[in-house]
Design a protein around this nucleic acid. Structure first.
Lengths: 217, 217
DNA sequence: GTCTATATAGGGATAGAC
DNA sequence: GTCTATCCCTATATAGAC
């Protein structure tokens, strides 16, 4: 009955792939809903609907709402801050790095425009989550970039200032438009397309804006 | 029985003052809880506890959770955007206005540090609220300030750029640090006091940062 | 693995006494 | 105006059939 063995293996493999597929479908659906509505605004039913499956299955794969959320939050966070820090940690020369930073980071933000609000909101309402999370997943810190700024100052290339103010300002300039998108759109009377080209322009605007401000005259 | 009349009036007045006091207590409590937890994260019980009264009283004064929220949201929003627009609408000369803006607006943000996240989160999850709200309460727009920027450009004082990019950048630089406070604190290893003096420094840093970037060399 | 049906709890809202 | 008790719906979570 060797065919039975084959058959069993075959079925197992199918099952496994289906399992992974479902798990993945659920995560994708959950990501969409959690990012849009936040933890407390999210209903398990909506995730199930979005994934095209049953509520009970959610609990079969992940035991609770909290567990699913944890998965989504971790993924969003990991996907996000380390990406910047990597850019800022590179060996590029300073001015070029500023360019790369805004260009790459704004691209990333355009792909995931809801993440900033999601992270800021959830972190503010649950700082302990951040604590434990940071401890687990971060060896990377902005120390190297802060040092690089200081080196530029020592070399007399840029004005002497608190490097942290510069770093925070760069993050602010890139992230804020996405967090405040609907307000900006309304106050400046922008359509979706208007906003898109506004962001596109911003990729050129920001490096010049920052560098002009930093450079010693 | 004239004393009875006096007595009745007296009681009415007391009642009225008590009523107003309770209403106010409730609003203060609700503001605290809603700002901290957002709409869906807020429990009526927590508002009641915070106000030192009973859940049923909340429904006596405001008919529903939605109604209380509406009151808080309106107040926060009105308290906030118009304040900026007023500064930006003043007749001060340009450079001086930049100074005033950052100084006054950061003061305001320090007094209500939770408002940015609150507004951005609720607006993102409920854009219709914004629509109807804007329509009701805004005659003020940033048009005047945008015009003033353009005038400076025409006069050859500042570099020619999209004025909207400048406005959004100014808002970003002021607001973002408060929205991302816990993350910044953690990433840059700041205590509460550290953060406070970081913000204090920022009041000086930002006007120079912006003006240096705008000025024509 | 996936479904239907159901248990259980939590929270917004109301009734009614004082 | 303020309280206690309670209604009732909704949402998470589980049981159990297939």
């Amino acid at each position: 009955m060797i065919w039975l063995n084959y058959s069993v293996n075959f079925i197992e493999r199918i099952m496994a792939s289906i399992e992974h597929q479902s798990e993945d479908t659920i995560l994708k659906a959950a990501q969409k809903v959690f990012l849009k509505r936040g933890f407390h605004g999210t209903r398990m039913q909506e995730i199930a609907d979005e994934a095209g499956i049953n509520k009970a299955l959610l609990h079969y794969y992940f035991r609770s709402k909290d567990k699913i959320f944890e998965a989504i939050f971790s993924a969003s966070f990991k996907h996000f801050l380390p990406q910047i820090l990597e850019i800022l940690d590179s060996d590029e020369p300073f001015e070029q790095k500023i360019n790369t930073f805004f260009s790459k980071y704004i691209d990333l933000l355009q792909k995931h425009p809801h993440i900033p609000n999601f992270i800021m909101h959830e972190v503010a309402h649950n700082p302990e989550r951040l604590q434990s999370f940071f401890r687990k997943h971060f060896e990377t810190t902005p120390a190297k970039f802060l040092k690089q700024i200081k080196d530029e100052m020592d070399a007399g290339i840029i004005e002497r200032q608190d490097p942290r103010q510069i770093l925070v300002s760069m993050l602010a300039l890139a992230i804020f438009p996405f967090a405040a998108k609907p307000i900006i759109q309304f106050a400046l009377d922008m359509s979706e397309d208007d906003f898109k080209s506004f962001i596109q322009d911003r990729k050129k605007f920001l490096p010049e804006f920052v560098m002009k401000s930093l450079r010693k005259i």
